[in-house]
């Protein structure tokens, strides 16, 4: 049987981990299908490049803001040189490119399984209250702001404390108006406008990860509660939960939006109240946790990308623990040299 070449971005397994290595590890556990994982990196020091037990070959690719033809040319080069049947982008900033040019990619024999443009826009933080309502849960009060004046109005309306969030990245907890203004400035300087001011809600953070089949069904769902996070707010320890209302909300979200592709639903759960905090239109960095408890979501996504009907399962036990750890890989400098000089691993 011919191997299937699957490209995965976001292989920067650092203290701010990207999802790519978790996706690649999941794909390497597929039974009955030989997968060659292709790491698509932006920097020669992304750790995934050197994790050769889960990533078979790596290539540097242009940043998402580059001209579309530069990215397309690079992907086609990789396809010709090594192989690229499916690509799984895992970073928010990449999705507009892959969504916009999915048909062109398909014509070149590179399959994807991504949200539609309308779905991608729907999940933006400005539309959170609508998505929450469609999912049968609540959303914290929020406002989209683009100036200090608007921010101050939002603070008066929402109250303190609140979360100050970038449209795509970063979130800060502000106790005072001064803190809120400082975080607003910080996000604008790094990521630009707009900024979201969102009421800080109490409760435990629980997240659901899944794949929507594009027809309103979710072939796989897994929910977990964050037990510990890093200083950057990234989950370090988690535990699987079977929270019926939370899982029902995820199913309702997929049914109402006919969601296509991977997603993560971030919620705060306070007793019987569930607040939708964010929808991520991609796998999160903890994606391997789902695979480890028997729900291989990257496999389902690849099957859908290839037009196959995925194996459906959301059958996992509550009380399975996920513990991230740090590690060191020792290798020859030559591997780094190849990435720097050739832009690919030899």
């Amino acid at each position: 049987m011919e191997p299937l070449y699957v490209g995965v971005t976001g292989i920067n397994a650092s203290d701010n981990p990207a999802p790519g290595t978790g996706v690649a590890r999941s794909l390497k556990e597929l039974q009955g299908l030989e997968i060659k994982t292709v790491g698509l990196a932006y920097d020669a020091m992304e750790p995934g490049i050197y994790m050769d037990w889960i990533i078979d070959r790596s290539y540097l690719i242009p940043y998402p803001k580059a001209d579309h033809s530069a990215i397309m040319e690079r992907l086609l080069y990789i396809k010709a040189q090594y192989g690229l049947d499916v690509v799984i982008p895992t970073l928010d900033s990449e999705l507009p490119f892959y969504i916009k040019y999915r048909d062109e990619l398909t014509q070149h024999g590179i399959a994807t399984f991504l949200p539609t443009d309308a779905q991608y826009r729907l999940r933006s933080k400005e539309h959170l209250p609508d998505v929450a309502a469609q999912s049968g849960i609540s959303a914290p009060k929020q406002a989209t702001v683009s100036s200090y004046e608007e921010l101050n109005k939002a603070i008066a309306n929402i109250g303190l404390p609140l979360m100050i969030k970038g449209a795509l990245y970063k979130a800060y907890y502000a106790h005072t108006q001064g803190e809120a203004m400082a975080y607003f400035g910080k996000i604008v300087a790094e990521w630009g406008y707009p900024v979201i001011a969102q009421a800080a809600v109490k409760g435990e953070e629980m997240n659901v990860i899944g794949v929507g089949d594009g027809h309103g069904n979710a072939p796989g769902l897994v929910a977990m509660k964050k037990m510990s996070i890093t200083a950057l707010g990234k989950v370090w320890t988690g535990v699987t939960v079977l929270h019926p209302e939370l899982l029902a909300a995820a199913r309702q979200f997929v049914a109402a939006t006919k969601w296509q592709g991977a997603f993560e639903m971030e919620c705060m759960v306070d007793g019987d109240d569930i607040y939708l905090i964010e929808i991520n239109p991609r796998f999160p960095a903890w994606v391997y946790f789902a695979t480890g408890v028997g729900v291989n979501l990257p496999q389902m996504l690849v099957q859908r990308a290839l037009g196959q009907t995925p194996n459906t399962t959301s059958d996992y036990p509550a009380g399975k623990l996920f513990i991230r750890y740090t590690g060191e890989e020792i290798c020859d400098l030559e591997r780094f040299q190849n990435m720097v000089t050739l832009g690919e691993s030899a």
């Binding site: 435990e204 535990v239 939960v241 759960v269």
Partner: peptide, 9 residues
């Protein structure tokens, strides 16, 4: 004690 719904222990 583990609560499978909330993840509390």
């Amino acid at each position: 004690v583990f609560d499978p719904q909330t993840g509390e222990s």
